[in-house]
Design a protein around this nucleic acid. Structure first.
Ligand code: MN
Ligand code: MN
Ligand code: ZN
Ligand code: ZN
Lengths: 137, 137
DNA sequence: ATAAACTTTGCAACCCGGTTGCAGGAACAT
DNA sequence: ATGTTCCTGCAACCGGGTTGCAAAGTTTAT
């Protein structure tokens, strides 16, 4: 497992420090996207700023992507191995209004949009809000 | 003009106080979506809390809709006259990474998404980021 | 091996958008 | 006129995010 973690980091040109290994471990176990405050709570004693910068580093190197789900805190989730976070790589996200979980709908690509003349697309954030399958029962 | 402002308020069952008339006036003139801090700056001396509650009232009564464009502050824009903010009523938004303006692309409806089983849709926030026609020159 | 240079971490402080409690004032109904 | 409800202004607070800085750790050059 540790092996794998380090490989992932190296594949994205991120030096495998202890802190980064731990954070990536959490992100790997995690099934839904996680916010900075939530990440903080996963550790007994961890510094917000360090975690913050760790996430920034991960994001810059496209190990993770961020989702603004409108809940007030940005969430983060692992990218697929080959992801370069280009517009074609993007998928839809789902934010549950009951449990607050945010899901990567990796099978659902963001639909192409035909923009008005002279508008240039760089990226898209598409978040569906509703009730997730866990809360639907 | 004042006439019109009051009519719009009454059409949404909002009592036309001075504050509300002024805010709606600003929102009507405004061509792009506006945030609470930006709205504050449109007035010499205005109370943030009052403006905040005014926007909330407007939103609850579907006179305006909110857009979370990921810039850190929620933006607001007028709804079309008949808008009920149902999923079918929603349109795509565009946030310019150069000038920071957020546009309502009212002609571009949010594409229908086929969610996984047991996921119930309530609403959608779709924001395209890029360079707007003004900044494209 | 030692020193210099660079990177990462931890702590504290700060910024800012958003939100709430409360008291005074305006509008409305009786 | 009196009571009730709604609106406004002020102040304080909250929480996520961000930064400066010095200590600790790592890498590179001598
Ligand atoms: Mn995702
Ligand atoms: Mn809009
Ligand atoms: Zn749920
Ligand atoms: Zn622009």
């Amino acid at each position: 497992m540790k092996e794998n973690i380090d490989k992932q980091l190296q594949a994205r040109n991120i030096k495998p420090t202890t802190m980064r290994q731990l954070v990536l471990q959490v992100l790997t176990v995690q099934k839904t996207a996680i916010s900075l405050p939530e990440l903080e709570n996963k550790f007994e004693k961890a510094d917000k700023a360090t975690l913050y910068r760790t996430l920034k580093t991960f994001e810059e190197n496209k190990l993770i992507h961020s989702i603004d789900d409108g809940t007030g805190s940005v969430k983060y989730a692992l990218c697929r191995e080959a992801c370069e976070c280009h517009p074609e790589d993007l998928h839809v996200h789902f934010s549950c209004t009951v449990c607050g979980q945010t899901y990567c709908l990796t099978d659902i690509p963001v639909p192409k949009i035909h923009l008005p003349a002279q508008f240039q697309l760089e990226s898209v954030n598409m978040v569906v809000k509703g009730i997730c399958s866990n809360c639907d029962k």
